[in-house]
């Protein structure tokens, strides 16, 4: 399989450990990731909230880059997924709108014909259970509080294959590498960062987060597990801002990277704000298979 990697601003420019882990994991799984000259997705809360047509034009430009090479797009962030999947939906379903946007793109020599599929990495992983088992070198034994994040689950009409009321696709992957999901109240609720609220109204963003963290902490998990660098950022920075809780934060690809035998330091999970030392210690003490 060959896919165009859409790393997104945050995994690329703030939590490089997530980009690193992604490249490591997908290489192990035999998926070739191709790079393209992308912009921000652009972010669905702020930029779409400011001007839908600008959001569509830049989204269309990104999709056109992948389409040129006949590749589908792999997102590793719910924001990028929601944004590109959303703009793709409009550009595919609404030929008039697509032409309008193409009139803009053609002025810079580009065009999008609607031929790309936007994938979320969790969905791709869910089709690769056997390969994950083959590549697994460690059963990590971590107890993880899974946070799905809004733009993976909703709008559900855009994600037909998924059981949005009671999803277990991430838990199923975690169980393959010996991790135990820890349940908590209001599991599918928002982290508080989306829609421009993270940068626009920190007080609200942090109150929503605090409520979520309180429920998560009840089960005493080893870490919070996410599938979105923006949720990741909110959990990691937010705990510091709240000066409360101290739960390490891990993206699914970081967990898989460790399970596939890469040293946590090499994946740079120690560059997070909330200390990951306990996780690193635990993983170091494990024996590789074979």
């Amino acid at each position: 399989m060959k896919l165009s990697l859409f790393p997104g601003c945050i995994a690329k420019n703030m939590y490089a450990s997530i980009e690193k882990s992604t490249r490591f994991v997908f290489d192990k799984l035999g998926v070739e990731l191709v790079d393209h000259r992308y912009t921000c997705c652009p972010a669905p809360g702020v930029f779409r909230g400011y001007d839908i047509d600008t959001w569509l034009a830049l989204g269309g430009r990104n999709l056109a880059e992948a389409e040129k090479d006949g590749l589908n797009v792999l997102t590793i962030c719910n924001g990028c997924y929601g944004s590109l999947h959303g703009s793709n939906h409009i550009l595919q379903e609404n030929p008039e709108k697509r032409e309008e946007i193409n009139e803009v793109l053609e002025q810079v020599g580009k065009r999008y014909n609607g031929g790309v599929e936007v994938l979320h990495f969790a969905d791709v992983l869910s089709t690769m259970h056997e390969t994950i088992l083959e590549q697994k070198e460690l059963d990590l034994g971590l107890r993880l509080a899974v946070h799905y994040g809004c733009h993976y689950l909703r709008p559900s009409e855009h994600h037909e294959s998924l059981n949005v009321e009671n999803p277990h696709i991430v838990e199923d992957i975690l169980e393959l590498v010996g991790c135990e999901p820890v349940d908590f109240k209001n599991k599918l609720s928002c982290c508080g960062a989306g829609g421009g609220v993270w940068s626009g109204d920190e007080e609200v963003a942090l109150s929503v987060l605090e409520e979520k963290l309180a429920f998560m902490s009840e089960g005493n998990p080893d870490a919070i597990l996410n599938i979105c660098p923006f949720c990741h950022l909110q959990f990691d920075q937010g705990q510091k801002k709240l000066q409360k809780f101290n739960i390490p934060v891990l993206h699914l690809n970081q967990v898989l990277g460790m399970a596939f035998g890469e040293r946590p330091k090499k994946l740079a999970i120690h560059t997070h704000l909330v200390s990951t030392r306990e996780i690193e210690k635990k993983v170091k003490g494990l024996k590789k298979k074979g």
């Binding site: 669905p44 809004c150 709008p155 928002c190 421009g196």
Partner: peptide, 12 residues
């Protein structure tokens, strides 16, 4: 208007 996180709970 700017405090919506676009979580889509309401629309769902």
């Amino acid at each position: 208007l700017w405090d919506c996180t676009t979580c889509y709970n309401c629309a769902e």
